[in-house]
């Protein structure tokens, strides 16, 4: 069974759990979903890892957003503006549309970075162009985006997760 089918099964178990309760509410549905998750991740080892990966990525993204909005707030409120704008090219290992869409959206959500376009480099590899408010060293930014965002997304979307 692939991950999508297991997820549908999980939703089905949650509906079943909620239907068996007298008070039908979102909370019972969520509790049922969590129990189904527990059950299914015992049956399908990869599924639990995927869910852990998704939740981990969300927490990572929330943390990144909070940290960098404080940073951007600092730049905005500084007595003298010290901006250092630039666009860098990030060669993508992600190649499905879903992976690229998630990566570009999470880069845009993180303050200070903004994805501008997806294109192809001269060698034909897909690249993402990212605008930085305060750039510093181009290679350092590139590496941090690749190792933080892309690696985490690929870990979830491709199989073989070890978390």
């Amino acid at each position: 069974m692939n991950t999508r089918n297991v997820f549908l099964m999980n939703l089905l178990l949650a509906v079943l759990w909620a239907a068996l309760h007298a008070d039908l509410s979102v909370t019972t549905f969520i509790v049922g979903f969590l129990f189904g998750l527990l059950l299914l991740s015992v049956a399908h080892r990869g599924y639990g890892a995927t869910v852990v990966g998704v939740v981990g990525f969300m927490l990572f993204l929330i943390r990144a957003i909070i940290v960098s909005s404080i940073q951007v707030a600092g730049y905005v409120l500084a007595p003298t503006l010290r901006l250092d704008q630039g666009i860098i090219e990030i060669p993508l290992e992600a190649h499905s549309d879903l992976e690229i869409a998630i990566l570009a959206s999470s880069i845009t959500l993180t303050p200070g970075t903004l994805s501008v376009d997806v294109g192809r480099s001269s060698t034909g590899q897909r690249v993402l162009y990212v605008h930085n408010l305060v750039m510093g060293d181009a290679d350092a930014v590139r590496n941090s985006i690749k190792s933080d965002f892309e690696r985490r997304i690929l870990r979830v979307t491709r199989g073989g997760m070890t978390i």
Partner: peptide, 11 residues
């Protein structure tokens, strides 16, 4: 042109 660094320029 006023960006300090622009790797998108060629593409």
């Amino acid at each position: 042109r006023q960006l300090r660094h622009d790797e998108m320029a060629g593409s």
